[in-house]
Nucleic acid binder design. Structure first.
Lengths: 132, 132
DNA sequence: CAGAATCCGATGCGATACTG
DNA sequence: CAGTATCGCATCGGATTCTG
């Protein structure tokens, strides 16, 4: 992986820096992690339990990515057993605030969407038109 | 594709409906489309030009997905040549508002992130420690 | 406890060609 | 103009195994 910027995507990013930024929140877990980390310094296992269903692999990868983007800090306590705390940076905290607006919408319209989907599916199903 | 809810993910969605909703904004283009569609009724080609770099395929797929979610409407004018207008629904418009908060953050911190990444890469590079 | 490494299936997305 | 259909690569993400 390293630090490639997906060469092609870059051209788009030039015209729309927003897209580039959003790409790093696009993952399946990124947002959840930022949310969970907002409650203050959190440990690895803590996050693992908050994000029900996440694998160690993905947690680590996303954590590293967010750290690289300067959205959260990783503090290693040289104890035994090892202990690592994750906390949002100022930028990360601001992002989390912005995301709250989004999750707020999600809570308000989550049900609405499910209904809309079912209506759509009923209408666009293998339907012979108005047969029924 | 149809309407599978990725059985496993469902369990997570139950605990966190937010995740489920965010999944439909997670794509590379969804957000851009919602933004572009916010300016009022927009035509297919219009969108295609706004979202620099998008392929017809992805535009269509995302459009259909958003329509299915009840976030935008698709109006076909039976003329020749055909003409189709896309417009946000009330839900979609609200989502767009929420996303503005996010894109606002993006604009403020886009540069910050790039810097953070480079600093991170310099520090975590194939570095032999303090040799330098 | 907090990872790193590897394997592998599922999905995203782009390029291209065809259509009403 | 506004799609649809098919192909193929790249990335995402899960399961498993090994380590300091």
């Amino acid at each position: 992986m390293s630090h490639r910027h997906t060469d092609v995507t870059r051209q788009v990013a030039d015209a729309c820096p927003v897209t580039e930024v959003l790409d790093r929140v696009a993952g399946k877990w990124s947002i959840g992690i930022l949310m969970a980390a907002g409650e203050g310094p959190v440990r690895f296992t803590q996050l693992e339990r908050s994000l029900t269903g996440i694998s160690r692999r993905m947690l680590t990868l996303n954590l590293r990515k967010l750290e690289r983007d300067g959205l959260l800090t990783r503090t290693v306590h040289p104890t035994v057993p090892p202990r690592v705390d994750y906390a949002l940076t100022p930028s990360g905290a601001e992002l989390r605030e912005a995301l709250l607006t989004l999750t707020g919408w999600a809570r308000r319209h989550g049900g609405t969407i499910a209904v809309a989907q079912q209506a759509y599916d009923r209408e666009h199903a293998v339907d012979s038109g108005s047969a029924r």
